[in-house]
Every structure is written in structure tokens, then in C-alpha cells.
């Protein structure tokens, strides 16, 4: 009896292992195709990027581009180039473009090598593409949040706003929350819960900023509104008399 039970358990385990090995075996050609595509395209990209870098260096591409740029221009291409070298930017762009193409082709090969009616392919493949998209969204959101936070911080400090850091953090988290919600939505995770949470968080941040600005700079807002409104010139009799108010002297400083 005990021996029979042992045989049944052993047989069940054996069948399970067999099924796992079968699944793995059915995965292996696809994985191999994926890896092969990525490696081949990465090698191709590396070779082409090296060739491109050599060609551009021989043609003095950086110097030529710099000489065509206006001295006062910010140099957009060089601004975003690693080590201030558009040649390096072009070669790296080529390499990563080939890597991405390799991944795309690898995924296609993986998909083709797998059974169409397999439940794994239906579940897995949309997610690979979605995860890539979500990572890109998060990356772009992080970069944008950092850039905007710095812009707001510097602008607010130069405008002498005491709550400059609060504003900067507020903008940063607004963009980060937006990016995170977009990424989750892209992954189809959470559904309504994410939308609801995002709405609450986003609204909360906006409300906090509005309250902070409204309470912290009532005078500034009042002056701004007064300045933007076209008010008719008061008649001489309507000018409020302030005996203690001396006429405001014009600014003596001239920066330029």
C-alpha cells in the first residue's frame, strides 16, 4: 500500500517535471532566437557605430558643426550630446537603435517560434512591449520633472518668492505622479483605482500649491491683477491724499 502510494507520488512528480521540461523546451528555441537576434544586432550596431565614429572624426564633424553654430546660440545638438560631442551622440544613437531593432525582431522571432494558441504568448507578449513603453514613459517623466523643477526653482528664487522650494517640489511631484499614472495605465494595472488615486493625488498637489501661493503672495497677486487691469486715470480730486507718502524715487541702479 505504502509502496503503491510512493509510486503514484513519484509518477506524479515525474509527470510534473516532464511537463516543465516540455514547456521549457518549447520556450528554448524562442529564447535562443531572441538572444541571437539581440546579439547579432548589437554586434552589427557596435560595428556600424565604430565605423560612423571613425568617419565623422575623420571628417572633423564636431568642429564643422561648431563652426556653423551661432556663437550666442545654445547649441541644441551639442547641449544634449555626451561629452559635448555630436559624433559620440550619433555613434551611440546608432548602436542603441540597432539594439532596439534587435529586441523588436527577437520578440517577433520568439512569438513566431511559439504556438499561436499558447496561453503564455497571449499573456506575455503584450506585456513585454507594454513594460518597455512604461519604462520609457517613466524615464521621460523623470527627466522632464527634474528639468521643470530646476527651472521653477531658479525662476522663483530670482523672482524673490519665499516658497521657491515648495513650488519646485510641487511641480516635480506633479510630473512624477502623472508619469507614474500614465505608466500604470499603459500596463493596464489597477484600472479605475489608479485613475482615482491619480486624480486625488494630482488634485491634492494642485490644491496645496494654490493654497500656498494664494496665502503666501496675496500682495503679489493683488499687484499683478491691478497692473493687468486697465484702470481709468483718476481725476485730480480723486487722488487719495497721503501726506506721509513721499513720491517714489526712480530706481537709481542701471545694470546695463
Amino acid at each position: 500500500m505504502r509502496q503503491q502510494l510512493g509510486q503514484q507520488i513519484g509518477s506524479a512528480l515525474h509527470q510534473s517535471i516532464h511537463r516543465i521540461v516540455l514547456v521549457l523546451a518549447s520556450f528554448l528555441p524562442g529564447i535562443l532566437a531572441f538572444l541571437l537576434a539581440v546579439i547579432v544586432f548589437a554586434l552589427l550596431g557596435w560595428a556600424l557605430s565604430a565605423l560612423l565614429r571613425a568617419l565623422l572624426s575623420a571628417a572633423h564633424f564636431d568642429q564643422r558643426l561648431a563652426s556653423r553654430e551661432a556663437p550666442s546660440a545654445s547649441g541644441l545638438l551639442a547641449e544634449w550630446s555626451p561629452a559635448n560631442s555630436p559624433t559620440l551622440l550619433a555613434s551611440r544613437f546608432t548602436f542603441w537603435l540597432f539594439v532596439l531593432v534587435g529586441i523588436a525582431i527577437g520578440i517577433s522571432a520568439f512569438d513566431a517560434s511559439y504556438a499561436v494558441d499558447s496561453r503564455y504568448s497571449i499573456f506575455l507578449f503584450p506585456y513585454v512591449a507594454h513594460i518597455t513603453g512604461a519604462i520609457l514613459i517613466l524615464l521621460a517623466g523623470t527627466l522632464l520633472a527634474r528639468f521643470l523643477a530646476r527651472s521653477v526653482l531658479i525662476g522663483a528664487v530670482n523672482a524673490q518668492l519665499q516658497y521657491a522650494r515648495l513650488l519646485s517640489h510641487g511641480i516635480k511631484w506633479l510630473v512624477l505622479v502623472l508619469a507614474a499614472a500614465m505608466a500604470l495605465d499603459h500596463l493596464n494595472i489597477g484600472g479605475v483605482v489608479v485613475e482615482l488615486a491619480f486624480g486625488i493625488l494630482f488634485g491634492g498637489i494642485v490644491l496645496t500649491l494654490a493654497l500656498a501661493i494664494g496665502l503666501g503672495s496675496r500682495d503679489l497677486v493683488t499687484r499683478s491683477i491691478e497692473k493687468s487691469m486697465e484702470k481709468p486715470l483718476p481725476r485730480p480730486t480723486e487722488i487719495p491724499s497721503r501726506p506721509d507718502a513721499a513720491p517714489t524715487p526712480p530706481p537709481r541702479l542701471r545694470h546695463f
Partner: peptide, 11 residues
């Protein structure tokens, strides 16, 4: 001077 102090705190 106040602007400088603000910048020192934030920048």
C-alpha cells in the same frame, strides 16, 4: 542681499 540669502537656501 535678501535675494542672495534666498538663493543660498535654495540653489
Amino acid at each position: 542681499i535678501e535675494t542672495f540669502h534666498l538663493a543660498q537656501d535654495n540653489l
